[in-house]
Design a protein around this nucleic acid. Structure first.
Length: 499
RNA sequence: GCGACUAUCGUUCAAUGGUAGGACAUCGGUUUGUGGUACCGAGAACGAGGGUUCGAUUCCCUCUAGUCGCCCCA
């Protein structure tokens, strides 16, 4: 029955809509629109090709000039791969994250630092490590017009350490605690929660070697995630020893792996000497078998590192934070020493996804030319945190909404409404309006839809009398008041309504 | 970096080898001084390029982007 009715309605609609004239008109419009579009496209393409061809024949300098005057290529209206816009709809989550991070920074005594997005490439090569995946495959490196080899930062710690050394923070009262937040860049293959540009929040502590700091940082990460509504998290922890023991272990590992060189897949063989740890956690079954018999990292630890780790664990137990000892946890950055940790959240299908991680980097400052000074830090992936917040329907930060709408009618009233708007602003009453519209009905409809409590209406008559109409949107009742008395009356109305 | 899947108005979902329809949203209107509901109307899409075909949004290829798995990590 219903479908019959609907169908009938549809046909009627269609009949009226597609009267012969209209159809013809429409078709004409369409072709008129289409043909020039296509033709234009082709023309652009042709000329672009031409330019490209001639350009190759000319000298480099000429190409540079041509670049300035080149025929415009078709605009690609999308961000670069793996990069995205964060639209107003998502901002309440981001705002919440920023607020929680700022608050945590304050509570734990961190001061904000901002460093450039771009640094000399070798800063990252030297700190993150030349054999790491991040540096080898994922860094946005380029040469500037001035001939400098630079890179977009793939993480935040390197820049912070550079600033620490450069500005002589080694003489600041210890410990020095820095909080940084901003985009980082990795040329990775994008997926959900993995972006080439993503935002990280980073906390670094300099000049403190006590393992209690390590535990406190884990607790801080835990607290941040918890207060953002992300509760189902698990921390993986490990100690990778000092540079010395690590080097010794690396040698031992290399020696062991050399015996199996022929069994190891060709694409992994280079790692045997460069970065043997990577072979240990390769998913390849042959590698797994070889890894099972390999010398263990824990056994290679020096007594000091063992002690440090034991105390770290003790502190965590004291804090009651759930953790998993995970001796395959190495972390992708070479500067780590001793404590490393990574925090995961359980996602759909029991899959875990990393939200952040960090560790100690006691040797980094010295390695980059600074004083010999211990350091500890961790980073959080803010995009992933936002994703997770959405998944668990966590609380976000909604900005206060206007509760008053200002409607105007007629030229004089329109003029007056500007000052009235300013008066309301000054009185701290958030007001929305639709000055571009003249129709009262349309304005009130908008007021209704935006959910305000009070509408202020000013028309020709009111403008002349120096009054405005105040309308209670709930009850529909309205009163006329002098402009002078508008602000207090509106305040009173709002107060009554919120009760 | 490897493998796979996907691509239609702003959003979401249809249909189709003969160029596309709805819902939500947007804008306008229902005698230019009164909102919610209702009604009427408008604008708005086949990711890009090639091929097959008389004709491709539909079939094939390439590219681009997204998603999934691996890798890596945040």
């Amino acid at each position: 029955m219903v479908s019959k009715k609907k169908a009938a309605k549809k046909t009627a609609k269609r009949a009226s809509k597609k009267s012969a004239k209209k159809v013809v008109k429409k078709a004409a419009k369409k072709t008129a629109k289409r043909v020039p579009k296509k033709a234009a496209k082709k023309a652009v393409k042709k000329s672009a090709k031409k330019v490209a061809k001639t350009a190759t024949k000319k000298t480099a300098r000429r190409t540079a000039t041509a670049r300035k005057t080149r025929v415009e290529e078709p605009l690609v209206l999308q961000p670069l791969r793996g990069m995205r816009d964060i639209l107003p709809g998502d901002q309440p989550y981001w705002e919440q994250v920023r607020r929680v991070l700022n608050k945590a920074a304050q509570e734990y005594g961190f001061n904000r630092i901002q460093t450039p997005l771009v640094e000399f490439e070798n800063l990252f090569v030297r700190s993150v490590g030349s054999t790491t995946e991040v540096v080898q495959k994922e860094m946005y490196s380029f040469v500037t017009r001035g001939g400098d080899r630079v890179a977009l930062r793939p993480e935040l710690t390197a820049g912070n350490v550079r600033a620490f050394i450069q500005h002589g923070m080694n003489v600041w009262p210890k410990p020095v605690k820095l909080f940084s937040m901003g985009p980082v860049y990795r040329y990775d293959r994008p997926q959900e929660g993995r972006y080439r540009e993503h935002v990280q929040g980073n906390f670094d502590i300099y000049g403190e070697s006590d393992p209690i700091i390590d535990a406190q940082m884990v607790q801080m990460a835990h607290r941040i995630l918890h207060s953002l509504g992300i509760k189902d998290v698990v921390f993986h922890i490990n100690s990778i020893g000092t540079p010395k023991t690590r080097a010794a272990y690396k040698k031992k590992l290399t020696k062991y792996l050399e015996k199996y060189r022929r069994k190891i897949p060709a694409e992994l063989r280079a790692f045997i000497t460069d970065n043997p740890f990577r072979i240990l956690d390769a998913k390849d079954p042959v590698c797994a078998e070889i890894a099972a018999g390999a010398p263990r990292a824990v056994d290679a630890l020096d007594p000091e590192s063992k002690e440090h780790f034991a105390r770290f664990v003790e502190y965590l137990d004291e804090l009651g934070i759930t953790y998993v000892k995970d001796d395959t946890l190495v972390r992708g950055l070479d500067y780590y020493t001793q404590t490393v940790f990574e925090v995961f959240v359980r996602g759909e299908g029991g899959k875990r996804r990393s939200l952040g991680g960090g560790g100690r980097y006691d040797a980094l400052i010295k390695a980059l030319g600074g004083e010999d000074m211990p350091a500890m830090g961790f980073g959080l992936g803010l995009d992933r945190i936002v994703l997770e917040m959405k998944r668990v329907h966590a609380k976000s930060y909604e900005l206060p909404r206007p509760r008053v709408f200002l409607a105007q009618l007629g030229d004089l009233a329109k003029k007056k409404s500007l000052t009235i708007f300013a008066m309301l602003q000054k009185a701290g009453i958030l007001t929305s309006e639709s000055f571009g519209r003249g129709n009262l009905r349309a304005q009130l409809r908008k007021a209704e839809r935006s959910g305000v409590d009070v509408a202020i209406i000013i028309g020709q008559k009111e403008a002349l009398d120096g009054t405005v109409i105040l309308k209670d949107m709930m009850s529909g009742s309205q009163e006329t008041v002098d402009v002078d008395k508008m602000v207090p009356t509106v305040k009173k109305l709002l107060k009554n309504i919120s009760k």
